[in-house]
């Protein structure tokens, strides 16, 4: 039997060194709510587990010039308990609040949610719609990429060997912006999104939508950014006609599979329904001066 090693580095350099030097399979452990399930189900049997929760860059939430930054290992509950963050980013928090039960959110991190690369991850459409970027470190240094460029398919990411997501940055949005995320699940809680929709939009002084971003979860191999759906909103007052166009564009963009959680037809239809509902919440938040 092979030994499963556990390391809990306290600096980024040490973490990167461990990841880069590791022979055999390595798993990064943040909240562990996906990793431990995968170990329990015998889906992975890592030789090395690198626990990143003792590294300060990964666990901080702070306001920076031009936006908010939070560590990739910050738990859902820590974000929920951060009043200013919640007030500033209600759309992102819509998604974070849906990552599992309260117990799960006590551990689960946004970094884990993103890097687990499930197309149904609840925080991802919300982050993408909000224009979030991720800071990644690795043996070759630091780089910054949009969140939508991390997951490439179910369980697959663009991270290279030895790389690690350190934090997420949410750039301040202009006045008159609002964001929202909703998902559809058969149960009210404790479920995986059959469809998830994240939308951020910005209204001009005239009430006309000047910018929008629409991201759909669980309808393709990864979260989709649907430009046609955003275009349906821009230049409108987010009226009925615009919402119809949004719903149609959202449905048209879906390329889902049939699986135990939903059929293709169902996902395509509900993506449109949800897009409309989410846009209305985002609109209300934009009008209320919230972001």
């Amino acid at each position: 039997m092979t030994e499963m090693r556990y390391e809990a580095p306290t600096t980024l350099d040490d973490a990167v060194a461990l990841l880069a030097d590791s022979k055999g399979s390595t798993t990064v452990l943040a909240g562990g709510t996906d990793v431990l399930v995968q170990i329990h189900m015998d889906l992975i049997e890592p030789d090395l587990i690198v626990d990143i929760k003792n590294i300060k860059e990964l666990t901080a939430i702070k306001k920076e010039k031009g936006g908010y930054r939070f560590g990739a290992a910050v738990s859902g509950v820590e974000l929920m308990d951060h009043e200013d963050f919640c007030q500033t980013w209600p759309g992102v928090m819509d998604g974070v609040k849906l990552i599992g039960s309260i117990q799960v959110k006590g551990r689960a991190s946004v970094g884990g949610n993103v890097c687990n690369a499930s197309p149904a991850a609840d925080s991802v459409p919300a982050l993408i719609a909000a224009g979030a970027t991720a800071t990644i470190v690795g043996p070759k240094g630091k780089r910054e990429i949009p969140v939508e460029e991390i997951a490439t398919g179910p369980g697959q990411t663009s991270l290279k060997d030895g790389e690690l997501v350190v934090s997420f940055f949410l750039p301040n949005s202009p006045a008159g912006s609002g964001g929202a995320y909703q998902r559809f699940t058969p149960r009210t809680e404790m479920d995986i999104a059959v469809v998830g929709v994240g939308i951020n939009l910005t209204l001009g002084d005239d009430g006309v939508c000047s910018a929008a971003k629409v991201a759909l979860g669980a309808v393709a191999e990864k979260v989709l950014v649907v430009e046609e759906a955003a275009a349906a909103l821009v230049g409108t007052q987010v009226d009925e006609a615009a919402l119809d166009n949004l719903a149609a564009a959202a449905s048209a963009a879906c390329r889902p599979i049939d699986d135990k959680r939903g059929t293709k037809e169902y996902r395509i239809k509900v993506a449109g329904v949800l897009a409309r509902r989410v846009a209305l919440i985002a609109l209300e938040r934009a009008q209320g001066g919230q972001k």
Binding site: R187, E189, D191, I192, R261
Partner: peptide, 8 residues
């Protein structure tokens, strides 16, 4: 229990 959905 995630996909065999007993009521919560």
């Amino acid at each position: 229990f995630l996909d065999y959905r007993v009521p919560v």
